[in-house]
């Protein structure tokens, strides 16, 4: 269980506050207008941004004092997920070993991940030689290799066209099924997410978030709630 309790942070003169729970293995879509703190939430969970107060527990243990790379979270940003000057192979290797030196077993894991994410023929290329979709797939493969139980996705496929976006989402779902990981995914494309998401964290303001199941969300939407809000999100 991921338990976010009274978590707050400041970014310039903006204040944010979050509180929600997510069961292990579930997928939560985080939606809201720009500037509400969706990416900030992921950065705070990851430890990349300071927290004013509150606590984050994973499986009953607080992660607040845990160094960034030892937290149970893997993250994909909108961009800059790979070192552009290193080969895809080395980028993947860094998910397993901080020195980049791999044992035979780890090398096998890299090859396996490359096969799984259809990157075999691209291992010795640099990210600049891949398409946008392939780059994000390589980044996903590295997160896969890290075997983190929680996956934080900050609109990693937003710059791709709808077909590739759907493909990226499929990769995430496959990975979730295989590893049983919990996923928090920031998105502006809620309609595409509804069939696969378990919960929705809907931002009304930076300090007011609704934690809803999909059925609760559908019901409220049928009642005409969130109409303008969702319009502004999708039409961003």
């Amino acid at each position: 269980m991921l338990d976010v309790t009274n978590l707050s942070a400041r970014l310039g003169d903006q204040a944010f506050h979050w509180q929600f729970q997510l069961k292990a293995g579930e997928l939560m879509a985080i939606v809201g207008a720009s500037g509400l703190g969706k990416s900030t939430l992921l950065n705070v969970l990851m430890g990349l941004q300071a927290t004013a107060q509150g606590d984050v527990n994973w499986q009953g243990r607080s992660v607040m004092q845990v160094p960034v790379h030892e937290r149970p979270f893997g993250i994909l940003f909108q961009s800059h997920n790979l070192f552009d000057h290193l080969s895809v192979r080395l980028n993947l290797a860094l998910g397993l070993s901080r020195s980049g030196r791999l044992t035979d077993d780890q090398q096998h894991q890299v090859e396996e991940a490359a096969r799984r994410f259809e990157l075999q023929s691209m291992l010795d290329r640099t990210p600049g030689q891949l398409s946008g979709g392939q780059q994000q797939r390589a980044a996903l493969a590295r997160v896969f290799l890290q075997r983190k139980p929680v996956l934080l996705l900050d609109e990693p496929f937003s710059s791709l066209d709808p077909a590739l976006r759907q493909e990226g989402l499929d990769w995430v779902r496959d990975m979730q099924t295989e590893l049983g990981c919990t996923v928090l995914l920031v998105t502006h494309h809620l309609e595409e997410m509804l069939p696969v998401t378990d919960r929705i964290l809907l931002g009304l303001t930076g300090q007011q978030w609704l934690d809803l199941s999909v059925s609760e969300f559908r019901k409220k939407r049928q009642e005409g709630r969130f109409e303008s809000l969702l319009g502004s999100i999708e039409g961003r």
Binding site: I75, F83, L90, R98
Partner: peptide
Amino acid sequence: NQYQRLTRVLGLSRWGAVRFVYWPV
């Protein structure tokens, strides 16, 4: 700017950052 977050997420040491990020660039 480009790689500081990624370096932290991957837990690269200072030497690792020099080797994989700064020296190649």
